[in-house]
């Protein structure tokens, strides 16, 4: 019996982001319209592996996911040992644009989850001409804290088991146990303080409420898709955000949690395929 090898390939690119060169790991599969995928805080690009193995998507889309610096197999900057990692909105947006430019992607679709879902609101406003559509999974336009920022002073944020336990309830009880726990494993893997550093963006430096109104829907349509079990970005957060963005569409996913693409891939494709169909129908 032949060995099962997935169609995903992984490579490294050396990319300048805000004056620093980073060694960035990215994975991809498929051909067609580029679809850049942004992982959640404290995780990495493996969250999108199921999309990359779905021929209904890869027959039309080039699905590409990169690990942000400090995450997964992407390096931190040289000299990291003397730095405290804190993700800023400026850096996150710059990294995404730099990645798209480096790979010479022609008006890609950008899809991010959680902190990535929040970033797409800013990307759609600032760079709407460069993206044909933006999909925010579990995305809203401002922090909506469900735990106190004072907790960030606790050393537990340096522990993978804590990061996983902190977010474990964000996965839906309806999602298959195997994929819920795989999703949590990514948090176990996250390097010391990486999740905490991402929280700087997610909980402090991502007030994008003023951005939505400036989105040009004729250039970049925004889709916001949120699971009904998500209490980090609630369905109400998503619907409120969608109302502030011209042309935005809010889609609430039944029985889904905060990590749709990785916690329940079968259910997620029921929701994402029609959105990708719609984007494909928009033409260039």
């Amino acid at each position: 019996m032949p060995v099962a090898i997935e169609p995903i390939t992984g490579r490294y690119a050396h990319i300048d982001i805000m004056g620093e060169t980073y060694r960035i790991y990215f994975e991809e599969a498929g051909e067609g319209t580029p679809l850049i995928c942004l992982h959640t805080a404290g995780a990495h690009s493996s969250q999108f592996r199921h999309l990359m193995c779905d021929e209904a998507i890869t027959s039309r889309y080039r699905v590409i996911a990169f690990d942000l610096p400090w995450h997964g197999k992407s390096n931190p900057p040289v000299g990291w040992q003397d730095m405290e990692y804190k993700l800023t909105a400026d850096f996150y947006a710059a990294a995404t644009i730099a990645f798209a430019d480096a790979l010479e992607l022609d008006r890609p679709v950008v899809m991010g989850c959680s902190m990535g879902g929040r970033l797409v609101v800013r990307l759609a406003r600032e760079h709407g001409q460069r993206f044909r559509a933006a999909i925010g999974l579990e995305g809203s336009n401002r922090p909506s804290p469900w735990w106190d920022n004072s907790w960030l002073d606790n050393d537990v944020f340096a522990r993978g088991d804590f990061c996983a336990a902190l977010v474990s309830g964000l996965a839906s009880p309806h999602s298959p146990a195997e994929f819920r726990h795989e999703t949590l494993w990514h948090y176990h893997q996250s390097g010391s303080d990486v999740f905490k550093g991402d929280m700087h963006f997610f909980r402090t430096d991502s007030q994008f409420e003023a951005d939505g109104a400036a989105v040009d829907p004729s250039a970049c349509k925004v889709f916001l898709m949120t699971g009904e079990y998500d209490y980090s970005c609630t369905p109400a957060d998503t619907e409120r955000t969608a109302k502030t963005i011209p042309g935005a569409e809010a889609i609430i996913m039944r029985e889904m949690g905060h990590f749709p693409m990785s916690e329940h891939p079968e259910r997620f494709r029921e929701y994402i395929l029609p959105v990708l169909d719609q984007i494909a129908g928009m033409g260039d």
């Binding site: 804590f162 009880p173 209490y231």
Partner: peptide, 28 residues
Amino acid sequence: GFNDVFAMTSYGHALLEGDSAVFLAHLR
């Protein structure tokens, strides 16, 4: 809103009080 202690505290269905550091240190 009821599937996790943080879901419950987030939506106001439950209250977590006291020394949360002990809770966090052994969260799982």
